[in-house]
Design a protein around this nucleic acid. Structure first.
Lengths: 185, 185
DNA sequence: CTGATTGCAAACACTTTGCAGCAGA
DNA sequence: TCTGCTGCAAAGTGTTTGCAATCAG
């Protein structure tokens, strides 16, 4: 039970307020340019995967991608999917996101702003948000350290509004050491 | 090569400015209180693991913990280490951190402020920092979403001062699509 | 005493990789 | 034609789990 607070429950249901999908053309052109510049080839498999990727709203996992492609009757192996996801990252189209130690999640970043996430440890629900203040703070922190930022990940784990109703922490879960608890943070 | 920008190189070398170690007594008491309250037992193995955990500075992996314990002649199985790490999280003593899809990292949070990280994608070096502004911004964002924050993770991936000298991006790495690149972020 | 704990080894799940045949450019 | 690409199945690896013996309270 208390496990829920530690490990993110399975596939997150993303609450997305972002545009449904992105125009395929420009991103595809970007990908082809990247492939060409790296002596790689633009194959039907890669095209299908990019297509499926752009159809995603919010975070998604490799598994979902493969599943959707198979459902469409397309025959793409896991290996190719993973290999292509890597290329898409190098091309600056995708960003890999780490929420848990089970699997990687991916987020499309090409041509759109990036998002950060609020993760409900009770329900596993993931809420996206985008904050300019955060980006500014990030740059400020980097400046202080002479660091050149390339990307970032900001995950807030907590309780969503819905899950807060259901009483305190949890029924069967013994009181979470109310005393001496670390500075909640 | 460009992989370096995607996957965090092995075990990070933490640049830590935090106090070397934490007094064992109070944290141990906290742990015992938690165990007692959950009908769990305080065993020698758990004591040794907690001890090793508190000896860590900055982030560490399960592997390192087991290694250090064995080096000290203590006989603790991986299974027990992982099981205890889970309990330590539930007790609010540890926080699990996700940097990559290879393994989990852990950070002691009991009685100290938490940290966030700057990760150099070129060298794998990890620099800790702590920011009140970030905590405030986090709370502000949560308030806007009716979310109750429990913990967070903020990772900034980029280039450390040292790695910036060595020319542009990388020698063999073809130009990273200068055109149409996503809003670096 | 009794239920929780431990170590071991097997199981797991996501991801990566070797290889032989296939196919962009 | 010359590389790079694909699928498959096997290998990898961090983490979890079943189980019988052991131990804390």
């Amino acid at each position: 039970m208390s496990e829920a607070a530690r490990i993110l429950p399975n596939l997150p249901k993303i609450a997305s307020a972002r545009p449904q999908s992105l125009p395929y053309e420009p991103v595809c052109a970007l990908f082809r340019r990247y492939l060409h510049g790296s002596n790689l080839k633009f194959t039907p498999e890669r095209a299908m995967i990019l297509d499926a990727v752009l159809r995603q709203t919010g975070l998604f996992e490799a598994e979902r991608l493969v599943g959707e492609l198979q459902k469409l009757g397309h025959r793409v192996s896991r290996a190719t999917a993973y290999r292509t996801l890597a290329h898409l990252q190098d091309a600056g189209i995708l960003k890999q996101v780490f929420f848990d130690n089970k699997q990687s999640y991916y987020e499309v970043i090409a041509g759109r702003q990036t998002y950060d996430y609020l993760i409900c440890v009770a329900t596993g629900k993931v809420i996206e948000f985008s904050s300019d203040k955060l980006r500014k703070l990030r740059d400020e922190i980097c400046r202080e350290h002479g660091f050149e930022p390339l990307s970032h990940q900001f995950h807030i784990f907590g309780l969503s509004p819905e899950s807060q109703n259901t009483a305190q922490p949890a029924p069967t879960d013994v009181e979470r050491d109310p005393v001496g608890a670390p500075t909640k943070d």
